[in-house]
Design a protein around this nucleic acid. Structure first.
Length: 664
DNA sequence: TACGGGAATATTTTT
DNA sequence: TATTCCCGTA
C-alpha cells in the first residue's frame, strides 16, 4: 500500500511518542507545549527547569520543527552539551542538530562567519583575561604614567574598569566616579589608556570577551545580516536569564527580531553575576522588551528535602529586596542540615575528607557529592587532604588549565601560526628566547607585521649575535609547522620539544609543568584543527584538574569541588559548604551596600539549594591569615538561624577525628 | 637592554 | 601567599 508522507512545517496536533502529561506537572507542561511568541519562565531552584527545557526541545523537534532552527543559549557550554545529550536520550539523534552554547560562543561563530562585514580576518584571535592584562601593561608603560604622583591603578583594576564600562553601558568616567573614586585624579590618563586599548585590539585584529558581544551587536545593525541570522533560528531559548546584562538582552532582541519566538528562563533569586554587569532586574523587564509575553512560573521543588528548603527560605527572608517565592516540596522532611564547627582549616579538611570516605563506604557514589566554596583558593587545603586520601576529584572554578603560564607559552606558538598578526603572542614567544627582552621583542614584532613571510625572520637586518641562534631556532620551528601537514597532537609535540629547555630554565617546578604539557598533547587529539583548538580553549576553558582526569581514565567517577558560581544549575545528594565565615561569605569586599550584601546572600542561597538529601555547612574557628592567625566569625547570614533549622555538630578531637555518625 | 633578587602590596566570583 | 614592582648589575 502506498502512503503519502506530508511534510508539514509544524504539526499542531501530532501524536507524540513521549507521554508529556505523565512526565511533567501542569506548569512544566505549559512551558513544554508553548509554541510561538515570547515567553518568560520564572523557575525557582530545583523546580526542574533544565528538565523542562530538555522536554521542550524534544517536543518541538517531535512536532516537526527543524532542529537546526532551534537556538539554545546557556550560561556555560557544559550546560548546553548536557541538555542536548538528555534531549537526544529521551527522543532521538535529531536533537543533536540543535544549536547550543554561550552568548560568547554563538557570537564568536557569527563573527567568524561574517568577518568581512566588520573588516576582520577569518582567524582573528580571541584574547583571554591574561592577554588583555598583558596588553594593558604594555600600553601603560608606553604612556609613561607619572610615577611620582599618587599611585596609578593596577592593570587588573584597569581591566575591570574597562569591562565594567562595556557591560554596564556606562562611560569610563561614570564607572571610575562611582566605583573607583580613589583613582579620579587619574581619570584623564585612564581614558587615554582606554582609547589606546581599543585601538590596539582593532589594529591587531584581536577581540576580548566583551568585544565578542559588542561587535555582534554592531554586526547585526546591518539589516541584511540581521534578517539572515534571525530567520535561521526560529526558536530561541535562553537559560539563566537572570544573569544576562544589557548587551545580552539587546542581543536576544536582535536574534529574534523577525519572529519574537523567544523563551527565557531564570530565577531572580539566583542572580549572582552582578560583578560582570548582570542585572537581575533584567528578567523582570523582559515583558517590556517583548510585549504580550506569556508568563509561566515553576514553583514546586523536586530536588531537596523540606528541611533544606526551610533553611533556604529562611535565608532569603534576610534580603533587603524581598522575593515572593517560597520553595516547597512533596519530598520527605529529611535530616536537619548540619553546622560543623572545626578548630581550623586543617580540621575542616580532615572532617570533610573523612566524612566523604564514610559516605562512600555506605555506598554513596563520589559523583553524588560536592564540596562548594566562595573563592577558588578556599579548597587548597582540602585538595591536599583528598590527594592524601586518594579520593579522585575534579575542581570547577578558580584557575583554568589554559591560563597557566607554561600552557600559554605553548599556545602562543600556535596563535602566531593561526593569526600572524597576533602581536601579543609574538611578544610572548620572542621574549622566551635568551637575550630577547621587551624592547627587542617589540622591535621584532614591528618588523614582522610588515614582512612578507613573518615566519622566516632570518632576512631581517635586525638580528644581532646576542639572540641570533634563538631566533633562528624559532624561525625553523614555525616554518616547519607551517609547511608540514601535521595532526594537532603532532604539532603540539613539536612545540613542546622546542619549548622544554625554556620551561626548565623558567620554572623551578618544571617536572609538574612538563607533565601537564604531556597530558595536553595527549588530549589535544579531540580538537579538529589548530584554529578550533584556540577558539574552544578560549571560550570553554578546561578546568585545571580535568586534564589529569581526562588523560588517565579513572575507574571511579570523581568527587566535585566547585566555586559556588560554577555550581549554578547543578545538584548533588550531599553538599558540603566550607569556609562559611564572615568575610568570605559575604566577601569582605561586598559589605558596603545592601545590594552587594544581597548578592552574597543569593550566592549562599544558590549553594544551599544545590543539596538534595543532606547539607553540611562547615567553618573553621581559627584562620591562618596573612599576618598570623585570627579568630573568625560564622557568616552573618547564619546568625539568626536557630537550632530547629540547623543542627550544630561537635567534632571529637581525638587522634583520628571521627565525625559524629549519621543518625539512622 | 636583559634579568635576577628583594621589597612592597593587595587579596572574588566568569565568559 | 603570590604576584607585581623596583633597582642594581652585567
Amino acid at each position: 500500500m502506498k502512503r503519502f508522507v506530508l511534510k508539514k512545517p509544524v504539526n499542531e496536533r501530532p501524536d507524540y511518542t513521549i507521554p508529556y502529561e505523565e512526565k511533567l506537572n501542569k506548569s512544566q507542561l505549559e512551558v513544554v507545549m508553548h509554541n510561538r511568541g515570547p515567553a518568560l519562565v520564572i523557575a525557582g531552584a530545583g523546580t526542574g527547569k533544565t528538565r523542562t527545557l530538555v522536554y521542550r526541545v524534544a517536543r518541538l523537534v517531535e512536532s516537526g520543527v527543524d532542529a537546526s532552527g532551534i537556538l539554545l543559549l546557556t550560561f556555560t557550554r557544559r550546560a548546553a552539551r548536557e541538555m542536548l545529550d538528555r534531549a537526544s536520550a529521551i527522543l532521538d539523534e535529531r536533537c543533536r542538530k540543535v544549536k547550543g552554547g554561550t552568548f560568547h560562543y554563538y557570537c564568536s561563530q557569527l563573527l567568524h562567519r561574517y568577518h568581512q562585514k566588520i573588516g576582520y580576518p577569518k582567524d582573528f584571535t580571541i584574547m583571554d583575561t591574561s592577554d588583555s592584562l598583558e596588553v594593558i601593561q604594555l600600553l601603560r608603560s608606553e604612556l609613561k604614567v607619572d610615577k611620582s604622583s599618587k599611585r596609578f591603578p593596577q592593570k587588573k583594576t584597569l581591566l575591570s574598569i574597562f569591562s565594567g564600562s562595556v557591560n554596564k553601558q556606562r562611560s569610563i568616567h561614570e564607572i571610575v566616579d562611582e566605583e573607583y573614586d580613589q583613582f579620579m585624579s587619574h581619570i584623564n590618563t585612564i581614558e587615554k589608556l582606554w582609547q589606546a586599548y581599543r585601538k590596539y585590539k582593532e589594529m591587531h585584529h584581536v577581540m576580548d570577551f566583551d568585544d565578542l558581544l559588542v561587535n555582534t551587536v554592531e554586526l547585526l545593525h546591518d539589516k541584511a545580516v540581521q534578517q539572515e541570522v534571525s530567520s535561521k533560528h526560529q526558536y530561541i531559548m535562553v537559560d539563566e536569564y537572570q544573569d544576562t546584562n544589557a548587551i545580552q538582552a539587546e542581543l536576544v532582541r536582535l536574534f529574534s527580531n523577525t519572529h519574537s519566538n523567544v523563551m527565557v528562563v531564570g530565577d531572580d533569586a539566583q542572580s549572582i553575576y552582578a560583578f560582570r554587569g548582570a542585572d537581575h532586574k533584567n528578567i523582570m523587564r523582559f515583558p517590556d522588551l517583548f510585549p504580550e509575553t506569556k508568563l509561566i512560573k515553576l514553583e514546586e521543588n523536586y530536588r531537596s528535602t523540606q528541611r533544606i528548603l526551610d533553611l533556604a527560605n529562611l535565608l532569603m527572608e534576610q534580603a533587603g529586596e524581598k522575593y515572593e517565592k517560597r520553595l516547597y516540596t512533596n519530598r520527605e522532611q529529611g535530616d536537619l542540615p548540619a553546622l560543623v564547627k572545626a578548630a581550623d582549616n586543617r580540621e575542616q579538611s580532615r572532617f570533610v575528607s573523612q566524612m566523604i570516605l564514610n559516605l562512600r563506604e555506605q555506598g554513596v557514589e563520589l559523583s553524588d557529592i560536592a564540596v562548594l566554596f566562595r573563592n577558588g583558593r578556599d579548597s587548597f587545603d582540602l585538595e591536599i587532604e583528598l590527594n592524601r586520601a586518594k579520593v579522585p576529584f575534579i575542581k570547577f572554578g578558580g584557575q583554568k588549565f589554559a591560563e597557566a603560564a607554561h600552557i600559554k607559552d605553548v599556545l602562543a606558538h600556535i596563535r602566531v601560526l593561526v593569526n600572524p598578526g597576533d602581536a601579543i603572542a609574538w611578544n610572548r614567544i620572542l621574549t622566551l628566547i635568551d637575550g630577547v627582552g621587551p624592547k627587542t621583542a617589540n622591535d621584532l614584532v614591528g618588523w614582522l607585521q610588515n614582512a612578507a613571510n613573518p615566519y622566516e625572520m632570518g632576512e631581517s637586518g635586525m638580528i644581532s649575535d646576542r639572540y641570533k641562534k634563538g631566533v633562528y631556532a624559532l624561525s625553523t620551528l614555525l616554518t616547519d609547522l607551517k609547511k608540514k601537514d601535521l595532526t594537532v597532537p603532532e604539532a603540539i609535540g613539536h612545540i613542546v620539544k622546542y619549548y622544554k629547555p625554556m620551561c626548565e630554565k623558567k620554572f623551578d617546578d618544571h617536572p609538574k609543568r612538563l607533565k601537564d604539557l604531556e597530558s595536553f598533547e595527549a588530549i589535544s587529539g579531540t580538537y579538529r584543527d589548530l584554529p578550533h583548538l584556540l577558539e574552544e580553549l578560549a571560550l570553554d576553558p578546561i578546568e585545571a584538574t580535568a586534564v589529569d582526569t581526562m588523560a588517565s581514565q579513572q575507574d571511579e567517577n570523581p568527587l566535585t569541588l566547585s566555586t559556588i558560581h560554577s555550581a549554578k544549575g547543578l545538584e548533588w545528594k550531599h553538599v558540603f559548604l566550607i569556609q562559611c565565615v564572615d568575610g568570605v561569605i559575604p566577601s569582605g569586599f561586598s559589605l558596603n551596600s545592601q545590594e552587594e550584601l544581597d548578592e552574597e546572600l543569593r550566592l549562599l542561597y544558590v549553594a544551599v539549594t544545590r543539596a538534595a538529601d543532606m547539607l553540611y555547612i562547615c567553618y573553621p574557628v581559627l584562620m591562618h591569615g596573612n599576618f598570623g592567625d585570627a579568630f573568625t566569625k560564622l557568616s552573618r547570614f547564619l546568625d539568626g538561624v536557630g537550632e530547629e533549622n540547623i543542627e550544630p555538630w561537635l567534632l571529637t578531637s581525638e587522634e583520628e577525628e571521627l565525625p559524629k555518625q549519621i543518625e539512622g
